[in-house]
Amino acid sequence: MKNFSKELSFKTSRSSGAGGQNVNKVETAVTVLWEVNASVFFHEEQKALLLDKLKNRINAEGVLFLTVSESRTQLMNKNKAIEKIIELVNKALIVPKKRTATKPSRAQKQKRLDSKKKLSDKKENRRFKL
């Protein structure tokens, strides 16, 4: 993933929320930007998969962005942003395994019918009989 992290660019901004003078003076929030189509680390099928799965986080120019302002220091936020974007990309690249359709076995069908019959008998016994 070292090659991938070289393609990232960063922008800093002031964090929002409580924090007093530190928030007002220091730019601790970090936005990590990555141009998906310009990446040399992934091949075309992977890029298409990333563009499809992360379309809510990718802007019109094809730039994936993520803002982190959890920590009070810029360096920690930068490291967290790198971790999060790598995790995001790794999750997006996972292709789910196709489910093969199967029929229930005869024993499973019989078990289901037996449980239905048992419940029916239980309810039948609750009825008031004259």
Rank of each mutant, 00 (worst) to 15 (best):
F65D: 08
D52L: 11
R72N: 02
S39A: 12
V40W: 02
T102A: 12
A60C: 09
R72F: 03
I58S: 14
K80M: 06
I82C: 00
K80T: 08
L88W: 01
V95G: 01
N37A: 15
K103V: 12
A101Y: 10
N59L: 11
N90M: 02
T31C: 11
Q74W: 04
E44P: 01
T67K: 14
F65M: 13
V30I: 06
N79L: 06
G62N: 14
L88F: 05
L54T: 15
T102N: 09
A48Y: 05
K78R: 08
L54A: 13
M76S: 00
Q46R: 12
R99V: 09
E70C: 02
I82K: 02
E45L: 05
H43S: 14
A29P: 03
V36T: 07
E61V: 06
E45T: 11
I86C: 07
K97W: 04
V95I: 12
A60M: 13
L64P: 11
L75D: 03
Q46N: 11
K53A: 07
E70N: 10
K98C: 01
A60R: 15
V95R: 06
T28R: 07
K53M: 08
E35Y: 05
S39T: 10
N90W: 00
K55T: 09
A101T: 06
L66D: 05
R57A: 12
I86H: 03
N90A: 05
R57Q: 15
V30P: 07
W34I: 13
S69G: 07
E45W: 01
K80L: 12
F41E: 14
M76I: 00
K78V: 01
A92K: 10
L54V: 14
N90P: 00
F42Y: 15
